[in-house]
Design a protein around this nucleic acid. Sequence first.
DNA 1: TCTATGTATGTAATATCATAACACGTCAAT
DNA 2: ATTGACGTGTTATGATATTACATACATAGA
Lengths: 172, 172
Amino acid sequence: MPAMPHALDCPGCAAPELAFAAHDHAHCAHDALERAEAVTAANGARMTPVRRRVLEILLENHKALGAYDVLARLGAEGFGNQPPVAYRALEFLVEQGLAHRIQRLNAFTACTHPGEEHAPAFLICRLCHMVAEAEASAARTSLDAEAARAGFRVERSTIEALGLCPACQGAA
Amino acid sequence: MPAMPHALDCPGCAAPELAFAAHDHAHCAHDALERAEAVTAANGARMTPVRRRVLEILLENHKALGAYDVLARLGAEGFGNQPPVAYRALEFLVEQGLAHRIQRLNAFTACTHPGEEHAPAFLICRLCHMVAEAEASAARTSLDAEAARAGFRVERSTIEALGLCPACQGAA
DNA sequence: TCTATGTATGTAATATCATAACACGTCAAT
DNA sequence: ATTGACGTGTTATGATATTACATACATAGA
């Protein structure tokens, strides 16, 4: 799987913050799955059937899914249908950096560039509910500096924006 | 109520991002209540007994309280004891800019500088659970710019940091 | 003053999100 | 073959939030 040619071809992969833009999503998802296998292997973690399936479900589109939405899908496919089944798989994916939790929505979304160190901001469209990741290092730097002024040491930060994606701005 | 002399005297009020610092909290809370009355009056909104009481409860300290914590207090004091009673009052306070919702905690905290236009970042101590407001305009500017690159229009954003407050850094 | 209107509150019922605790199965290392 | 770590299934429960409807209360206009 040649990484560079692919990234150059695929807007969604080359610039994941453009999840809103049209892109070859099947490709995008397939690629993310491949990377996920690599990431878990590198971490000595196990990508089991439930976990893989949950990731596939999240990768179906760039929206955030609630744990119970995922659970319903799992149950329908013969996996367990009790909440811990979904929550455990989601927690695993988040730990491995393969999915993110969107605090504002109490929901989860597949990571669009797994394997790369990142702590993105999320752009959440209030109409179509798409979620994109955006580079957040500048915002985080400002936040850390401001926190430091108060003597506060930041360990993790959540940056989420609610608004309108390009397509929905036209609609509204 | 002379605003300037007071602000100069009270670290908590002069620099609300220093909620972690020692300050005359009774004064801080009393002042916030007075300002709250002014804000609601200016907005043509009604500061009713339940709403005032909820604000007082939130003002007791700089921690975030869950809706059900607030509700338990209300119920014990003769107000309604069903969830909507708390949620409605909290929603009102948030709308009026007198309280903030902390997404990460599914909880609410009194605003430390009501009446001033602001969209702060929150600094949440994971040990003592204190919550302080920090200036977030720089971080927001970065975020908006990054969002604009993706064609996304930000309407509201949530910026929350989890970490250790000055006091708890010593303890840990 | 009366009454119509909008707003606030109380209450019941229910929906939605999340975790604790325990049983069972698999697999790799001894 | 036994042990121990890990993953999954299941029951039960806890925590957070909303819908819908009934009642009370304030205030403006007749």
